[in-house]
Design a protein around this nucleic acid. Structure first.
Lengths: 230, 230
DNA sequence: CATTTTAAATGAACGGCATTCATTTAGTGG
DNA sequence: CCACTAAATGAATGCCGTTCATTTAAAATG
């Protein structure tokens, strides 16, 4: 979708300089963009276990060491992938719609994108935004939406962080096995929990992770929405 | 070998299970308990980067391969550590106090314990409770408290999961660098976000992670607390 | 055009990692 | 006393990310 393009003609853009006018370099077989899309494809095909620098190099028909001319570490590649994925997070509704629905769209799409990429979460969570331009653009769109909705400025960042923390934790939850709450042989010694799990299973046909996410998200929406000015 | 698995004088014999005289195999040098506490000590001293099977074996004066008689993988050790740490999470108030304060105590202590052990979060989040008895005991205490507070049974597990997701995400947030939101050279193109970050910095002396955690936790408490029967 | 410069690619290393396995050791139970 | 077995050994395996001296070839220089 639209998401987070923006960044109007940034002069010192850190990414994507396809060709050099002033000259030194030579032929270009590899660049950060190609590495990023190849990495994303490889992860899609082989998962994060199969995602190695050697495997990545192989899909690009290149020696592993060649990657290090464009990227300084495997973590660097993960940062590129993370930033790329963030552009799939839906922030469109922050420009026009009501705040609650904008947050819902954003939160669900954010969770859905990264529930398939949970190994990136430890990377995102501590990554300076300056190293991830598309992520920064997402924050700008969300901040603008919060401001438009009447949030006091000093509460905007903590509120976004609270939502994000919930989203990241919930992304892990999506990947949990269905029988994660099965107490097995110890069920007898945990009666309250065991019966609560039973009632859950008897409940709706919705996926448990979705029920919990909806419940928590609506609670956060109500509680944090109250911070807005009248 | 020469009767010397390295320097005989080990400056820090941390743990000790019954030790046999000669350096050769004997009975009971190692068990899961000793491995768990040694792992915890090692992690405390060297962090998760320094936590390797070889390093763990060294602190136990044992060959790395010996560990595999008691543990089937490194992940197994992490599970043991995780379960041990969970016993430091405070669930006492669920037995008697008001529900809100019990959840506060639980959530803050849960976050504090695992903010120093974020590499365990991907393990916990997907681990069947049957493999972690102390974790299961925590869920039993929390479930009992929710039930006592008037929660309908079918909402207990989703509510706990929502809290937990927020807690895990917030644990990462604690570890983020202080300048994570510094936009650097791109500040000009993200005015709303940049000014929100500025207002944050001007704000209270509380740690940003604590402000966000408190904000989100209180919102969840209000929103989810409303699910209780009158 | 010849020469210099330089980014990019190569392939052979390196050290570290988790894990496996044949073997050895020493207590234990028949 | 002997057979059995749990537990520790150390060597070996196969990956992994990363480094580095070297080569390649296109552009810049004059």
């Amino acid at each position: 979708m639209t998401a987070a393009t923006s960044a109007p003609a940034d002069p010192h853009g850190p990414v994507a300089e396809p060709r050099r006018r002033v000259g030194r370099p030579a032929a270009a077989v590899l660049d950060q963009n190609g590495i990023t899309t190849a990495a994303l494809q490889l992860i899609g095909k082989s998962g994060y276990d199969g995602f190695t620098m050697a495997a990545l190099a192989r899909t690009l028909n290149v020696a592993p060491s060649a990657l290090y001319n464009h990227v300084s570490s495997k973590r660097d590649v993960l940062v590129l992938v993370q930033d790329h994925l963030t552009s799939f997070v839906d922030v469109a509704a922050f420009e026009a719609g009501p705040w609650e629905q904008a947050v819902r769209d954003w939160a669900w799409s954010y969770r859905d994108v990264f529930s398939k990429h949970t190994p990136l979460i430890p990377v995102i969570a501590v990554l300076p935004v300056a190293d991830a331009p598309k992520t920064l653009a997402m924050y700008e769109a969300v901040s603008a939406g919060f401001l438009r909705a009447g949030f006091p400025q000093e509460r905007i960042v903590p509120a976004i962080v609270a939502f994000e923390s919930f989203i990241f934790g919930s992304a892990y939850d999506v990947t949990a096995p269905a029988d994660i709450f099965d107490s097995g042989t110890m069920a007898a010694s945990t009666p309250h929990f065991t019966s609560a799990v039973q009632r859950l299973a008897e409940g709706s046909h919705e996926k448990p992770a979705d029920v919990a996410f909806s419940l928590g998200l609506e609670a956060l929406l109500a509680g944090l929405g109250a911070l807005r000015a009248a």
